[in-house]
Each structure stands twice: as structure tokens, then as C-alpha cells.
């Protein structure tokens, strides 16, 4: 899906937990996530810190979308 959407002309930030799969399949901007069932959150945190964690990941994704890349790149925090 990442490739088909990018093929249509959009930069795509792929937020996922198992980044090696994303790299194998061919996403260009890869953003590591927290866990498979909750990529953008951690239910063990209180709601405020859970949302803060989510915001950090989204900020990283937006950073990726505003960064030019020439090859597949994993944006570690």
C-alpha cells in the first residue's frame, strides 16, 4: 500500500513496529512504532503520557515527510 500510494505521487510515512518488513516490502520513509496491537500508544501509560508518546511518533512522521530522501530511510527518534 505504501508503494502504490507513493507511486501516485504522495510522500508516505509508514509507521510500523516491525520495520524490517516495511524495508523488505519497499516503503521509503519508515517510522518505528511501539507495538503491533498499539503502534501509536502504550495502554500501560496514563492517558496524558500515552498521548504524548503518540504525538512524538506523529512528529517524527511529519519530520520524515518534510525530509527529502534518496533511498529507503528508517527515521529513528
Amino acid at each position: 500500500m505504501a508503494k502504490e500510494i507513493e507511486r501516485a505521487g504522495f510522500p508516505v510515512a509508514h509507521i510500523c513496529t516491525v520495520t524490517p518488513i516495511s524495508k523488505t516490502v519497499g516503503a521509503n520513509r519508515i517510522i518505528p512504532a511501539i507495538a503491533i496491537p498499539h503502534p501509536l500508544g502504550d495502554p500501560s501509560l496514563d492517558p496524558a503520557n500515552d498521548k504524548k508518546l503518540r504525538r512524538e511518533i506523529v512528529e517524527n512522521a511529519l519530520h520524515a515527510l518534510t525530509t527529502d530522501v534518496t533511498e529507503q530511510t528508517i527515521f529513528e527518534e
Binding site: 500510494i5 510515512a13 516495511s22
Partner: peptide
């Protein structure tokens, strides 16, 4: 749309 955030589980 300008850009896409794609999330996977």
C-alpha cells in the same frame, strides 16, 4: 492531499 501517514499493526 499533500502527504500520507500510513499506519500498520
Amino acid at each position: 492531499v499533500s502527504a500520507v501517514i500510513l499506519t500498520s499493526t
